[in-house]
Design a protein around this nucleic acid. Sequence first.
DNA 1: CGAGAGTCCTGAAGGC
DNA 2: TGCCTTCAGGACTCTC
Length: 271
Amino acid sequence: MPELPEVETTRLGLLPYVQGQRIARVIVRDARLRWPVPANFAQRLKGRTVRDVSRRGKYLLWDCESGFVLSHLGMSGSLRVVPVSSLAGKHDHIDFAFDSGNAIRYTDPRRFGAMLWIPGRNPTHPLLDELGPEPLSPDFTAAHLAKAAHGRSVSIKEFIMNGRVVVGVGNIYASESLFLAGIHPKRMAGRISMSRHARLVDAIRQTLAKAIRAGGSSLRDYVQADGELGYFQVNAFVYDREGQPCRRCGAAIRVIRQGQRSTYYCPACQT
DNA sequence: CGAGAGTCCTGAAGGC
DNA sequence: TGCCTTCAGGACTCTC
């Protein structure tokens, strides 16, 4: 399940294969993603050169001269480099074939991802309009969190997973970040002290930066852009460790449901 | 406005 | 070659 570190790892893995490369053709085998792939998608991209690939939250923006590809990996999506002629499997929905002989292949068994086209030289889109700050940018501060949390009764765990608050914090890293910050996941967002917000900002930054350094983590579906298997997150403090001893204090890790998601935490370390 | 539930989809895992 | 249920996940969309 790609979270921000996986998306960033994908971007970095992809870049050497696509930057400055001309797209020979695009093959859309199945347009039924989160939203339908636009009918003119392949036509718009044919013959274009990819200038750059940037990231906003978990979205990737491919600068393709006359417009931008806006892509999201959803839950099970991946982008890998394959030879242009390689046979497509059941869930290989889109190929971007380059003059170089390489193709970027979008695979997504669950089809929760997206592949959209933004015409023109201005990469604006409703999906990007309301997004919060990048967690690794200077805009992500305790003051920002505190202001956004003011008066909110939602749990802090669900709060930090809201892309309007801060982008890129998915289910795994939300649990991990709250553990690092020593904050109980059920605590109300609007009742968090400024010093705790500061700890949380640091914890989210550390958690994401560490995962990016490790090349992204994954449990099942993620494959790195170069085709190598992604790293498994074997060193999680709490995620998917129900009943196992806390790595810090030894107490049994607990799991609860919040907003139809599993949250893992240490009942002793997190208050 | 916010909170919470529902929704898309496939495959893995577990119970029987 | 077993069938059925549950779960996983991002994040938009709907209802209250």
